[in-house]
Nucleic acid binder design. Structure first.
Length: 510
DNA sequence: TACGGAAGTC
DNA sequence: GACTTCCGTA
């Protein structure tokens, strides 16, 4: 930001999303030394005095209307010291956000755009918490049912260039956040699967709120960093808080660095959250918060697995953590939830070229969409993803349901076309499968597993086996191996419920 | 009004 | 990398 150009000094504490202080520092604009347009838009949206210029659209979460395009452009131009700025140019910049999926256009509505907060919040505010005590000010985008869950830490009222407040956004979270946003070629990792629509977010928040209604209150009162808790799946039972798998650490006094957001967006930067085997090598090293807590690690891995499954992410997104096994996954949501919680990830906006490409490709390579014939989930299918007949039936039913769910009215055909998921399937198969990452990517069967020695070389490699695709081979082994079956039956499976010891054992076994 | 390519700037 | 500027197209 050039000096003297700023017109929006600092967001007021009272309005709009309360992004952390550093979010408004130009340096915090990921990948840029200048304020980014979306930042600026948020700022305007947040300020009462610009309500006549730009405002949140009622009824649609994250949607805003530019009421006075020229004025917005003028403000933007002023901010950027570009007196020649006009709406045409500004909108061009906005259109660049389509591809980044930070923003998309609300079709049919003039000057109306919609934020994809998943894209904004997660990479930039990875440790923001959504707390039951949260407050969403007036100007925040309408969140029909659970606005009170959406909370950003309050802003400081002092200089925008002041440092991050300890305890608000700790160095670690900031670092992580910046690592996130500056991580290696994120574009490459931004598969279309990884995007969550704001609707997802909303649904998730709704989910949270409904859960909070029952057991709420526990999370927010804990003295901990303002982690972001993207509301998704919980694993009831182990942790006292039913709302989130990460909400409360079982270890007293530990907020839990591993309170990692599990969201479609998590996978945006899978490697960022990869935990190095040694805390010393951890990305969180610089933080005093790092703890190598096996419980949390298990929890984290578990959730990762859930995430991988539920969002059909590539298991590549799974952290490599030699020796660590993931406990049996019970990502299956509560029945009611699983029926309500339908995920529709936003596809990337299909550009002209892409549109053509997609269309031409559709015949040969069907895209996953609820309306289409059953297609393999867009996840690297691992041996573990073989389902037993029961789960197959289930997922078939689910698929049917998906196709019956019909289309969300507000979605355009184009969006619908690209809709990736109608609902995340619970991962029954993972429930018994070790997600170990010992000698490197046992999950990575699809790609290069062929060159790798299989995990159980003891099993006689039959010729037919050899001819079999690795997936099938592993499946067979999985199904046939009595030992494995036994383990499955017992539910031992490396995860024996003995906590850290189990982990240790598992690691040792591995 | 909106989209997106292309080239240029910082 | 994130725009800015220009422009052809729908």
């Amino acid at each position: 930001m050039k000096a003297g150009c700023s017109i929006v000094e600092k967001p007021e504490g009272g309005g709009g999303y309360q992004f952390p202080d550093w979010a408004y520092k130009t340096e915090s604009s990921p990948g840029s030394r200048q304020i980014q347009l979306w930042h600026f838009i948020l700022e305007l949206l947040q300020k009462e005095e610009f309500r006549h210029v730009i405002a949140w659209q009622q009824g649609e979460y994250g949607e805003f209307v530019i009421k006075d395009p020229d004025e917005v452009a003028r403000l933007w131009g002023r901010r950027k010291c570009k007196p020649q700025m006009n709406y045409d140019k500004l909108s061009r910049a906005l259109r660049y956000y389509y591809n980044k999926r930070i923003l998309h256009k609300t079709k049919g509505k003039r000057f109306t755009y919609k934020f994809n907060f998943n894209k904004l919040v997660t990479p930039n505010y990875p440790f923001i918490n959504i707390r039951s005590s949260g407050v969403v000010p007036q100007s925040a985008p309408p969140v029909p049912t659970a606005s009170s869950r959406f909370h950003f830490p309050p802003l400081d009222t002092h200089s925008p260039t002041s440092d991050v407040q300890p305890g608000r956004f700790s160095a670690s979270s900031l670092t992580a956040g910046q690592e996130l946003s500056n991580g290696t070629d994120r574009k490459a990792e931004l598969s279309e699967l990884e995007d969550g629509s704001t609707a997802d977010w909303r649904r998730g928040v709704d989910l949270m709120s409904s859960r909070n209604a029952v057991g709420g209150g526990g999370i927010g009162h804990q003295k901990r960093k303002p982690d972001i808790m993207l509301p998704l799946f919980s694993r009831p039972g182990i942790y006292p808080d039913p709302h989130s798998p990460f909400a409360v650490s079982p270890i007293p006094g530990r907020g839990g660095v591993l309170n990692v957001p599990i969201s479609p967006a998590l996978s945006l930067t899978p490697t960022i959250f990869s935990y190095s085997p040694s805390p010393g090598l951890s990305p969180f090293t610089s933080s005093s918060c790092f703890s190598f807590n096996p419980e949390e690690m298990k929890h984290y891995l578990h959730s990762q697995a859930c995430s991988v499954f539920n969002y059909h992410l590539s298991p590549r997104t799974f952290p490599r953590y030699p020796g660590l096994m993931v406990p049996p996954l019970q990502c299956q949501m509560h029945p009611e939830e699983s029926t309500q919680f339908s995920i529709k990830l936003q596809p990337p906006p299909v550009g002209r070229k892409n549109r053509e490409r997609v269309e031409s490709r559709e015949e040969s390579a069907p895209v996953t969409a609820p309306t289409m014939a059953p297609v393999p989930p867009r996840i690297k299918v691992e041996p573990t993803s073989e389902k037993d007949p029961e789960s197959l039936r289930q997922s078939a039913q689910e698929k049917e349901e998906h196709s019956q769910e019909g289309t969300v009215p507000s979605r355009t055909i184009e969006e619908e076309k690209g809709t990736i998921f109608a609902r995340p399937e619970a991962p029954p198969i993972w429930s018994s499968v070790p997600i170990s990452t010992p000698s490197e990517e046992p999950l990575e069967v699809t790609e290069d597993s062929e060159d790798r020695p299989s995990k159980e070389p003891s099993a006689p490699e039959k010729k037919e086996d050899a001819l079999m695709p690795p997936k099938l081979r592993l499946k067979r082994r999985w199904n046939d191996d009595p030992e494995a079956r036994e383990l499955r039956k017992d539910g031992k499976f490396l995860w024996n419920g003995s906590g850290p010891q189990g982990l240790a054992t598992a690691a040792a076994d591995a």
